[in-house]
């Protein structure tokens, strides 16, 4: 009924004793996420909120608690290392929220992924992933979501909330919402997530939110054209962004005339996706395709 995470997902919080880690661990627990362990080096043996055991290493946490997914709030200097530690411990999924990881570090992480590691990575620099009503892993506001059949995949955090808010306001629920993050080198991309949505019987339609920079949307468009039978509505942020200026995200930059919103929209339309005319129309555009 969802992709990647659900009711059975056993979550480990890497960096649980830090300010962001502890705040969001509490929020996740409140949402009903099975947070089974925390990890902070040299803090092993502590109890978080009196109920979540903290371990020195991810491997220990996995052994003791059966955690299968982690979420990372470790600051940038140690974040890439935390990702690799998660991979090495055999986690199914690692979700990295941390913003500001050096790109050289992520190139190494990506090389490990490309060598065929079994863990999947979401992020970094992302809001995380949520299967409404079942499992929230990340920093998104849980209460705006509603369980249902629309998959959302996005490079942007608040713009994901915007799409979810629009869907919920229309009474339309979501199967899973995945924030893949705004960095130039990262884990799962549009193609990976679109493929999972295509194969998930509980997902009936998809909203894909891209932005300027890189060629990930174009590759997503190619996948949509060749494999996707479910309707896809899309929005690409940055039509008005000037070339050569980084728009907040490290990855959101039109460099050498490449990666413009227009190119991406053209590719998506040509692939059979429908591009929302404004960011206020993301949900209604998908609904118009699903009727």
């Amino acid at each position: 009924m969802s992709i990647l995470v659900g009711k059975e997902t056993r979550v480990l919080v890497q960096g649980i004793t830090g300010s962001a880690g502890s705040f969001h661990a509490k929020q996740m627990l409140e949402y009903g996420t099975k947070v089974v362990a925390g990890c902070t080096p040299n803090r092993g043996g502590e109890m978080f909120e009196g109920k979540v055991p903290v371990f020195d290493t991810v491997a220990q946490a996995v052994r003791e608690t059966g955690a299968d997914t982690s979420v990372i709030f470790v600051p940038p200097p140690g974040a890439a290392d935390a990702i690799l530690e998660g991979f090495d411990a055999g986690l199914k999924l690692v979700v990295c929220i941390t913003e500001g990881i050096p790109v050289i570090d992520m190139i190494r992480v990506r090389r490990v992924i490309d060598a065929g590691v079994k863990s999947k990575l979401i992020g970094p620099n992302c809001p995380g992933i949520i299967t409404p009503g079942a499992c929230k892993i990340g920093i998104m506001p849980g209460h705006i979501h509603k369980s249902g059949h629309v998959g959302v995949v996005s490079r942007s955090g608040t713009l994901t909330y915007e799409a979810v808010g629009q869907l919920t306001a229309l009474g339309v629920g979501q199967s899973t919402c995945v924030g893949i993050g705004g960095d130039p080198v990262a884990g799962l991309d549009f193609v990976d997530v679109l493929e999972m949505f295509q194969n998930d019987p509980e997902t009936h339609g998809v909203i894909m939110i891209g932005e300027i920079g890189g060629g990930m949307e174009e590759r997503g468009a190619k996948y949509i054209k060749e494999h996707m039978t479910k309707p896809v509505a899309s929005f690409i942020a940055g039509t008005t962004a000037p070339p050569g200026k980084r728009m907040g995200h490290a990855g959101a930059i039109i460099a050498g005339g490449k990666g413009t919103a227009e190119e991406k929209m053209r590719a998506l339309e040509a692939a059979g996706a429908r591009v929302a005319p404004t960011p206020s129309d993301m949900a209604s555009t998908l609904m118009s395709m699903m009727k």
Partner: peptide, 26 residues
């Protein structure tokens, strides 16, 4: 980032900030 239009924008989040610029122009 300074641009040359006439509506000041204050937004949270980079993607939403870009989308806000886009909808004003649209």
């Amino acid at each position: 980032v300074a641009l040359d239009g006439n509506v000041g924008c204050l937004v949270n989040g980079a993607g939403l900030a870009m989308a806000t610029m886009d909808i004003i122009k649209a």
